[in-house]
Design a protein around this nucleic acid. Sequence first.
DNA 1: TTGCTAAGATTACATTATAACAATCGCTAC
DNA 2: GTAGCGATTGTTATAATGTAATCTTAGCAA
Lengths: 171, 171
Amino acid sequence: MNTLRDPLLMPLTAEHNHQQCVSRALNTAEQLCLNRGVQLTAIRLQVLSLIWADHKAVKAYELLDRIKPLQSAAKPATIYRALDFLIEQGLIHRIESLNAFVGCRCSGQPHELLLLICKQCEEVEERAALEVMHTIANELTAAHFIVHSKAIEIQGICGKCALQSLSESST
Amino acid sequence: MNTLRDPLLMPLTAEHNHQQCVSRALNTAEQLCLNRGVQLTAIRLQVLSLIWADHKAVKAYELLDRIKPLQSAAKPATIYRALDFLIEQGLIHRIESLNAFVGCRCSGQPHELLLLICKQCEEVEERAALEVMHTIANELTAAHFIVHSKAIEIQGICGKCALQSLSESST
DNA sequence: TTGCTAAGATTACATTATAACAATCGCTAC
DNA sequence: GTAGCGATTGTTATAATGTAATCTTAGCAA
């Protein structure tokens, strides 16, 4: 396995080719929906594309504003239905602590993950963190708890922003 | 250290003496606020007591309804201010994935924890889970991420409910 | 007394999310 | 081909959650 090409292991650097990043995500989405026999309709694709505009968490009503030029009839329900579908298919994540959404960089693979949410640049990074998941599984077994879903969200400052403010304060 | 008396290690069983559980929490809260020189005012204490009515997650507007008989003038802001205070003092937790709140069973001790949220009985259990926190810390170091806050919320079925439905289905 | 501060009251509003029902569209069994 | 079906979308209304801004009050200290 070429780890350099694994999106989960690729750092979210300024230099990353976002164009490529997006088209990969959309291609994967189309392929997945095809395989599963579910419809990635125009609206759903538009919402997914808008979410992938960047790696920041985006709010539902922000999406509504952004989609209006394309779908002038769009209403809250339009967005929430598309979001529900995309979450069901594992194409995006809901960020509970922000009431916001972000594109999933490892769609298709069953995955549980940490979300690292930067308060400064607002970007969200996913980490598979197998060790973390392992210890959580142990803890849950000890507690006799049957998992349905996990939300593991860390807020703070990402490496990129930390470096930046470091270099700024030293000038 | 007598682990049987550590609230974090005490299972949330049906038999637990809730009266004692609540008075312990309220006493701790009063003591803590006294030590810190902050005021546990009537409203704040009422909200805390209402949250401690049981171990279930409770919504802000539910609290508003519950407090109305005591404070007929109560408005959303009344509740949210009290909640903000209680969270700041570490006396309750906000559950991001439910937009709800629950009493903290280990107030005063600085603590990061897992919240295990049962979808059936709606009770919330806290687990200190030091190993989990340790692996998360490692993961964050690897990601060069500076933590401000964590939300680790697991939804599923608690041991008590799992046992119950097991014994029910076997009759 | 006066002025300061923390807390609370009040009003209005902003944000997030869903319910309920109608309309449409593509498919397929007849 | 068309009647019926399921999935999707449109439309309207409203519920649920949360905050901003401004004012008042109580306690306390100068």
